[in-house]
Structures are given as C-alpha cells and as structure tokens.
Amino acid sequence: MTAWTHKDLVALDALSAGEITLLLDTAKAFKGVGQRTLKKVPALRGKTLVNFFVEPSTRTRTSFELAAMRLSADVVNIAATASSLQKGETLKDTARNLEALLADIIVLRHSSAGAAQFLAERLQASVINAGDGSHEHPTQGLLDVFTMRERFGRIEGLKVAIVGDILFSRVARSNVHALVTLGAEVTLVGPTTLVPHTLESLGARVTHRIDDVLETTDVINLLRIQHERQRKEYFPSLGEYTALFGLTKARAARLQPGCLIMHPGPINRGVEIDSDMADGPHSVILEQVTNGLAVRMAVLYLCAGGAGAAL
C-alpha cells in the first residue's frame, strides 16, 4: 500500500495514482466522521493551522477552517487586506513570521502561480495550496474526483467533460491531472481562446463544440465563467458564451440519465448553467461542498498529522 511521504500538498501534477487514491480513501474515512453526532477527532490536537489567504475566498477558507477544527487543530485566519503584505513585506517574510509563531500548517491562497511551492520550499511547516493563480487548486480537484468516485465507484474509464475558461483555471488543471492519472478520459470544452490546443499536452482532449460531449459524458463539470476587464478580448459577451457553451435545459436534456453535473462554485446562474439545472437531479454541486470538508481533513491529516495518529 502507498504511504504518504509529503510535507506539503502543492499540486496534483506531481502525485502518483497510488497517492491520489490514498488521499481519496482517507477522505472516505473522514466523511464517516462527519456523519457522527460528535464530529471531532483529535488527530491534529495541539497543532496550529493558519489560513493565509492573500486572495479573497469564503468557501475554501471556511472549508479548511472547519476541516481543521474537526481535527482539533487551532485555527487562525489571515486575510490579504489585514496582512502585512499590504505594507510591503514580502511573502517569504510574512510566512516566516507565521512559522516563528509556531504554525504547523499554512493553507495558502494566492493570486500568483507557484506561490505555494515557493513557500513549501522555504518553510518547515506544511504548506497546503488552496489555489495559486491559474496553476492548481489541488483540494478542489480531489473533492471533484472524490465525488465522481463515490457516485460511480471508479474513475478509470469515466468520461469527464470540463467546460469553460480552462486556460486561466486552476480547478481545471488539478482536475485534469488527477483524472488523467487515475485513467479517466477528460475532454476540455470551451472557446478557442480559452481552450487552446496546447492543453492537450496535459493528456486531455480539446473540443470547441459542447455537442461533442453532451450525449456521451459521464460527468460535466462547469467552471465559473468570468468576463472581467482582462478577459474582454477572449470572448464577446456572457450572452454569446451561454449561447455556445451554457448548459441550457435543451442541452441538459441530451445528457445521459446518470450524468453528473458539477460546479466548483460560485455559480453564475443563467450563464454557464441554467438555474434549474443547478438544482436538478443531475446536480451534485452541494455534495461537492460537503465532500470538500472530508477531502481537506484527509489532506491536513496526511500532511501534518502523521500516519500514526488515530482516526
């Protein structure tokens, strides 16, 4: 059986199938804990976790916070606006100060790709990547794969379509790495500007027609589409995006009966997904959120708790 030997979780790109499976299996055990009346285990008692969010996030931060609490760790949250990065302190100095306060685990959300690896190489503490720029969001990738595995009992051979702004998506990258490593067939769908063919080097297929995947895919994962100042030249409008790639009712009707609709949130209702579809029978969007807790417990436990601690 695979053993966990990493201090940090920075990216799924580097993990083996055995390591990803170990994370998923551990998460499965922790999901059971969440269903108990007493939801707390002592695995990280006495450890300190710092949620260091240099980019705003509510969902991921809360999920890590709850996961740490359920493992009995002490938790401190530091948001970008409150942090001394605003005062010109470097990321390295801020993080070393956190470590000097004896933090055992630093969960980092940062707008720069590579920021988590940067810290992981420089700190004794465990560094957990909660999203670094357009690079990876490994716990999101794991919770998506966990949700698929729970529903289908396997990942190998599954057909998974990921739709949206793949080029700038850390969620897409983490999903692709985990899914490809575990043997799924991944198709990336979206406009040519946001889904360039260079993405095929990650081991996925690329298409620019959502019709190519609707009737055959086992999972359709819709990414939040943004049309902010820096994306204006990538596509003309949200309306045109929805017309080409939105999961409308008509398109959803062509999905297989057992097809899962996933979304990492927050949802733009009526843009990448029809509002009713987000709440419909195919949707596992809230299940993803619940599973996120178990997955993050597993990650914290394996990286910082040591395999010896009892569940």
Partner: peptide, 12 residues
C-alpha cells in the same frame, strides 16, 4: 514562453 510549460504551470 507561451507553450506547453506555460499551460502546465498556469503562467501567463
């Protein structure tokens, strides 16, 4: 450089 590595690393 814009290519396979920039795509993998998520860098502009």
């Amino acid at each position: 450089h814009e290519g396979e590595w920039s795509v993998r690393l998520g860098l502009p």
